[in-house]
Design a protein around this nucleic acid. Sequence first.
RNA 1: CGGGGCGUAGCGUAGUGGCUAGCGCGCCUGCUUUGGGAGCAGGAGAUCGUGGGUUCGAGUCCCGCCGCCCCGACCA
Length: 593
Amino acid sequence: MKGVPVLRMSTLFLRTLREDPADAEVPSHRLLVRAGCVRRVAPGVFSWLPLGYRVYRNVEAIVRDEMDAAGFQEVHFPALLPREPYETTGRWTEYGDTLFRLGDRKGTDYLLGPTHEEMFTLMVKQEFSSYKDLPLSIYQIQTKYRDEARPRAGILRGREFVMKDSYSFDVDDAGLQASYDAHRAAYRSTFDHLGLSYVIVSAMAGAMGGSVSEEFLAPCESGEDTFVRCTACDYAANTEAVTVPAPPQQPVAGLPAAVVADTPDTETIAALVDTANSRPDLRHPDRDWTAADTLKNVVVRLTLPDGTTEPLVVGLPGDRDVDLKRLEATVSPATVAPFEEADFAAHPALVRGYIGPGVLGTAGTSGIRYLVDPRVVTGTSWITGADEAGRHVFGLVAGRDFTPDGTVEAAEIRAGDPCPACGSPLDIARGIEIGHIFQLGRKYADALGLQVLDENGDLVTVTMGSYGIGVSRAVAAIAEQNHDDRGLIWPRSVAPADIHIVVAGKAEEIAAAAEDLAGQLEAAGLTVLLDDRTGVSAGVKFNDADLIGIPTIVIVGKALAEGNVEVKDRRSGDRHTVPAVDAVAELVALVNS
RNA sequence: CGGGGCGUAGCGUAGUGGCUAGCGCGCCUGCUUUGGGAGCAGGAGAUCGUGGGUUCGAGUCCCGCCGCCCCGACCA
């Protein structure tokens, strides 16, 4: 931001708050509100005030510059979109209540774009028809709308937000991989320049469709995504995308036959294990039974986008809970809900507390789809329900006594679980999703008929990638990672100004010296916030400066008597005196370093 | 979606069915102050989220709705 006039606190449209707003919990929300950066307008909808908007614009400019530098071309779509393209790809339905829908005066359906794959696909279809035109990567920076069930944490998860979304178009898989890699590299550079620390994790494509997908997560407590990181190798994944390593299959020959036992009042795993260990006829010959010896069968109700529902049973070791997010990610776009009384009433074959594989499976008597955890491999032996009240079966062997319809990744992931890549223990942490890159493949091109002629004159369907950066969310993520108990600490690259000058003292020479310094810094191309308020005590100004979080604070005050000013580093708190005549050179060097 | 908590001035809050809804911060005026959230005096600012109900009387009790925050969603 060269040549920007000095911002003056005396006239700035800003009111800082001395106390935390009562409705803000996470640090970024609290501090962005207190520092006068944003204000809430409606649930999940925020306005930007001057200081916050400067940060926002800096973030946006860095994103734009990086995209341009990578050779991607900027376009711009409307946020208000017609229904038809989204109907064609099925997302008018798949997006469900998350889609903001509206009608015009004639009753025609419109939507506010949650993301723009359809529009980009159609635009390329309209303009290009030859392989010679590809590869192509185009992007926009635009306001998106998603009617989130639960907006939260200020601008971390809003219903209106700004996203940079890119789309790549290639004739073949190798081209898609190259475009994907180019975006991945551009994203790394972007987040580096934004001053964010991040990890790249394997992810689930979800409703977006496609195969390969990675997320850029900014690790922090307030994050909504849980991810794992290997303590030994470089494996990292969203918990939704972690694949549980399957143990080797065991020979079934020689295993004892399954035995059904009366086990009254053992509707919970804990009660079942206690009973099994306390009864001589059920005891394990060598050791105590544990919950991991049981096969727990959890029933859920899937709701498909068209509103129809179907039951699904997930079988998993009894010491594990079902992670609904993981399950939902694998069955998307269907949603998952717990099975309720009415559901059990409709399926009498399911005996609560005693459900077992006996009746399960699409080929079983119940006809209910039965998927199991990858640990339930052929040859493993289980204690599980006998499908009769008060009875369990011991020694039921997978692959011999029952055959599930398939496996599913739905069990909770715990710290210490083995890494799927190397077997070392996994760590668990939380992060904010700041970027997501997908190899979409041909889902949208197929649905919308995006084809080009190849060098042989044959029509081929284009393969696509889609890539998003949460621009407004990045502002909040940066705030989450860069603050202390006194306020924000912006990275230099996005700070609302380069230098914050505090006029500490009422002497005219002090004000004049501060003005002079501000003018020189401005002339040198730095952006300056000058606290020139009169009648405001130095303490108030110092506190506001710490709250606002410009990385370098220059105090013009009592040191001026010796011809000095003080330069304070916001992050470290270190301060030192500098001869006023040398200040400009030092500050320019500091900012450009 | 479910459960819990909350909603009083720009912000933070007190208010136990009964007087003109109180306090701090912020804001305005004046004077004094001015290096880590100054002092004194005076002042403006509230349909107590909203709609209904109970009551002689409701910020206070009841119900609906809206909004905010937190937790939860399976234990077979």
